[in-house]
Amino acid sequence: MTKDECFYLGKIVSKYSFKGELLIKLDTDEPETYLTTESILVELNQKLIPFFIEESSLHKSSLLRVRIEDIANEEDADELVGLSVFLPIKELPELAEDQFYYHEIIGFTAFDKNSGKIGSISGVNDSTPQALFEIKHPSGKEILIPVNDSFIEKIDKLNQEFYFQTPEGLIEMYLD
């Protein structure tokens, strides 16, 4: 399985006990969703390695405390601390019609209430303090729109269309 077929779940931040238990800082608003996860994929040497979970529980609400099969002591656990954890995309929970995962809107046609068709969503940059929709305009220029609920007017998943209502001048700023 490749990273393209997976989503980032979180990072192993520390050991929990001398028995090899680990704490995973989850990148989610609903950590309880992952309490029944049977296995995780850990990125080790640029490869995703499957690990099977024997037991898990929430720790301080946003950390998943796990006991992993064949990790029975601190030394084994030390090798995993600091590594990223992934799950297959098919394990993402279903969302309401007006919600979306970043990966699923790539390629959607983007429209703005004032500017009409503005291009195609080529990505979402979430490495900045404010996540940004990256939109490729037909002219080849890139338009960046903050990921902000007040700028999203409608999502039409069936027709792969995304409708924005951006502040006046935002789109024009990129096209002048």
Rank of each mutant, 00 (worst) to 15 (best):
P50W: 01
V13I: 15
E142Y: 09
S150H: 13
N125V: 11
G20S: 07
N114S: 12
E32T: 05
L132I: 07
V147A: 03
F151H: 14
K90E: 15
I121R: 13
P93C: 04
I152C: 10
I121M: 10
A110E: 02
S115Y: 14
F7Y: 15
L144G: 07
E94W: 00
L9Y: 08
L35R: 05
G82A: 12
F100P: 00
I135G: 08
D76I: 06
Y8H: 14
M173I: 07
E79D: 05
S39P: 00
L144F: 13
K90D: 15
L41N: 00
S139M: 04
I53W: 06
F51W: 02
K157G: 07
E94N: 09
G82Q: 11
G107A: 05
L48K: 03
D149A: 13
S84D: 15
I24M: 04
H103K: 13
F18M: 12
K25L: 08
V124D: 09
E97R: 11
P88I: 08
Y174F: 15
S127F: 06
L92S: 13
I155Y: 02
V124Y: 06
G119W: 01
S120L: 05
L35K: 10
Q130H: 09
D29L: 11
K47N: 13
A110Y: 01
S14E: 13
L48H: 00
D149N: 13
K15C: 06
L158C: 00
S17G: 12
I143F: 01
F164L: 06
Q165T: 14
